[in-house]
């Protein structure tokens, strides 16, 4: 008798069909989810990479959101200071006008009134708020930082603080997000309100007008110099934004490399598995259902 052959060919066939089906399911899952890794066991290293990638992406987005919030308040502060500077320019012209010997006291009084109006306007600007927070209050953003105070020689006192908050714009990178009002408007020697009060008094008294005018000029120069902080910081934020956007693109690319499916490969795999499965099934159909018994009569 020859070698006995397994009389039951179905076991092998079923194993084959199961393997083909598994490959087909895998390919279908890749195509339908767009991912080649659909659970940690598919590629543990890739999933670990994905988790780190997600954390980085989430941080980059937080930095971008920090930047966008900060940009809003910095731009608002900068444009507010722009109106302050314009108002100071106007005050300087009024000083020049008042120093002109052709004016009488009544004229000078009315110029002094205009200067007072400018001071009031600057006081309002100094109390400018953005989204509910006072821009020039240091970190005491919930109270108006400048209040009229007749006891003060400048007529105004600062009730904010000197605090500066930082915002994070990258791993380990921060920028200051505000300039306290006492550093801008009431710095010793360049106090805007003192200068305007002095100009107004000089106009009212008719004496020392050029000195008061130069005091205003001095305050103007000082504020202009301080203002460059906003431009510089906004520039930094802009370059940080482009850097972070680029990082975001890289992270997305990396994520795709980690878990994204190669659609062309997956489609090829699907058709290969399909061909194999069909062949196995066709072979199953051909397994002889007859035996010698069918031929015995």
């Amino acid at each position: 008798m020859g070698i006995r052959i397994n009389p039951n060919p179905w076991t092998d066939l079923l194993t084959g069909i199961a393997l083909d089906q598994k490959q087909e399911n895998q390919a279908i899952q890749e195509l339908s989810t767009g991912k080649k890794v659909n659970q940690p066991s598919d590629d543990p290293e890739a999933v670990a990479g994905l988790i780190v990638n997600n954390a980085q992406t989430s941080r980059v987005n937080a930095y971008l959101s920090n930047i966008s919030t900060t940009q809003g308040s910095l731009q608002e502060a900068d444009s507010t200071l722009n109106t302050v500077v314009t108002a100071l320019t106007q005050a300087i012209s009024l000083g020049t006008e008042g120093a002109n010997g052709t004016l009488n006291q009544t004229d000078r009084d009315s110029v002094a009134q205009e200067v007072n109006g400018i001071q009031q306007q600057i006081l309002e600007s100094a109390n400018q708020s953005f989204e509910g927070n006072y821009l020039f209050a240091g970190t005491a953003v919930n109270t108006a930082p400048f209040v009229a105070n007749s006891a003060s020689s400048s007529g105004v006192s600062y009730v904010g603080n000197s605090g500066v908050n930082s915002v994070q714009i990258g791993d380990g990178q921060t920028v200051p997000a505000n300039l306290p009002g006492n550093q801008l408007f009431t710095a010793s020697g360049s106090d805007v309100f003192q200068a305007l009060t002095d100009l107004s008094s000089a106009l009212s008294s008719g004496s020392n007008i050029p000195a008061a005018e130069s005091e205003v000029q001095n305050a103007f120069n000082y504020i202009n110099a301080q203002r460059s902080f906003y431009g510089t910081t906004l520039d930094r934020l802009n370059s940080a934004t482009s850097f972070l956007n680029q990082e975001n693109t890289q992270l997305a690319q990396e994520q795709n490399n980690l878990v994204g499916a190669d659609m062309a490969t997956a489609a090829t795999e699907l058709s290969q598995a399909d061909v194999a499965l069909n062949a196995a099934m066709a072979a199953g159909g051909k397994i002889s259902q007859t035996s010698l018994l069918n031929y015995l009569t």
Partner: peptide
């Protein structure tokens, strides 16, 4: 492993990231 299937968005990492980001937002507006 299905509890940690980060490829389908389940797992701890989203909640961890959101938690720390909420402090970033707080820093913008404390």
């Amino acid at each position: 492993q299905s509890l940690f299937n980060e490829t389908q968005g389940s797992g701890l990492s989203d909640a961890i990231n959101s938690f720390f980001n909420s402090f970033q937002q707080l820093a913008d507006n404390p």
